[in-house]
Design a protein around this nucleic acid. Structure first.
Length: 337
DNA sequence: AACCCGTGGGT
DNA sequence: TACCCAAGGGT
């Protein structure tokens, strides 16, 4: 057996014993055929998002829209509301755009090649490779943050990310087996998520320890190296509580920018300066690249903008507000109660 | 390449 | 607490 074959043999052997049970996964050894729609749905939801956060959303989406045709026919607002709370809302718009492209341009069947998948909205290098491997058995080279870490350590690639990604992909390519490329990719990700974790990896139980070039190093927590993070600026904003007959005035945010396309409370721009006006309640919310203090102020019905909708306060859950606004309205209603 | 884009859990 | 991090993509 070659060294490369030994790698995948040990990895897949471990996976056969230790694979995580996940709602979107076909267990190793099963005769079940993966549903490309389900694989794609899971991969998009999992972009920069934890397994625990995705599970419930995946189940709800698959129940409500069981096929790509069902999703393609859905109302935009329904899909955005169903995505609320999961974050990175561009994904939800691209999810719909992709479903509609599959129906309109591919007869309702996902392309079965990496290149064909890569051309779809919201499908980048990672997602194209993972769907090609997991759903269609293609020997694609799948590289996510887990696999970057596993390979960077195993091959002792010390170049900082993101520049190291090219070297990681080159090192991984000859290791991908023709026989079970989908299980290979999932096994690498499981290994990175459960054993070869960012801090204090469990090297003692790693199936790849024997020839790991980072074995025994005291700096393994810092492999792969990453560029230092920038400080987050603080911003402030106002949100308007406009109430009439038990209903709240909601608007839809522009498609581009923060919380794009989502329902929201109306309000002004978010700026570096704190507002002079004192509000009813405030929430602090941390985004990826800035922190926000959002303050709720009451406004008159005559201040409602031209575009918007009156939403029953008793059914605010169904509005699909992003977490920022959900926190604010929860706090407001808690105060009233 | 560098920056924008959410959220919640772990430490 | 404050920081790190996650099955990344678009621009």
């Amino acid at each position: 057996m070659t060294a490369d074959a030994g790698f995948s043999h040990r990895l897949l052997g471990w996976y056969d014993r230790s694979a995580r049970v996940l709602p979107w996964r076909v267990p190793p050894g099963s005769d079940a055929v993966p549903d490309p729609y389900a694989v794609w749905m899971a991969e998009v939801m999992l972009q920069q998002t934890t397994v625990a956060a995705v599970a419930g959303y995946f189940e709800r989406f698959m129940t409500r829209w069981p096929t790509v045709g069902d999703l393609a026919a859905a109302e935009d607002a329904d899909v955005m509301a169903a995505w609320a709370g999961l974050g990175y809302y561009t994904r939800a718009r691209n999810l719909l755009a992709c479903a509609r492209a599959v129906v309109a341009d591919h007869g309702g069947a996902f392309p079965d090649s990496e290149a064909g998948l890569r051309a779809l909205p919201g499908v980048g290098d990672y997602t194209a490779a993972s769907v090609a491997a997991i759903a269609f058995g293609r020997a694609a080279v799948v590289v996510d943050a887990n696999i970057e870490r596993v390979v960077a350590r195993h091959r002792l690639i010390l170049t900082p990310l993101p520049a190291a990604k090219r070297a990681v992909k080159a090192a991984l390519a000859p290791l991908v087996p023709a026989a079970r490329p989908g299980d290979f990719a999932q096994a690498m990700m499981d290994l990175g998520a459960t054993i070869c974790i960012p801090r204090s990896p469990a090297c003692g139980i790693c199936p790849l320890l024997a020839d790991c070039r980072a074995r025994g190093r005291d700096d393994i927590d810092r492999i792969p190296a990453k560029a230092p993070k920038k400080a987050k600026p603080q911003r402030h904003g106002l949100a308007h509580w406009i109430e009439r007959d038990g209903k709240l005035w909601l608007v839809r945010r522009p498609d581009k920018g923060m919380l794009g396309g989502m329902r929201a409370l109306p309000g002004g721009e978010w700026t570096a300066e704190a507002p002079r006006e004192s509000g009813i309640v405030s929430v602090d919310h941390s985004f990826t690249h800035f922190d926000l203090r959002l303050t709720l102020v009451r406004r008159k019905v005559s201040d409602a903008a031209a575009e918007g909708e009156w939403w029953p306060i008793s059914d605010l859950d169904a509005a699909g507000l992003p977490t920022l606004y959900r926190k604010l309205t929860d706090k407001m209603l808690e105060r009233v109660a």
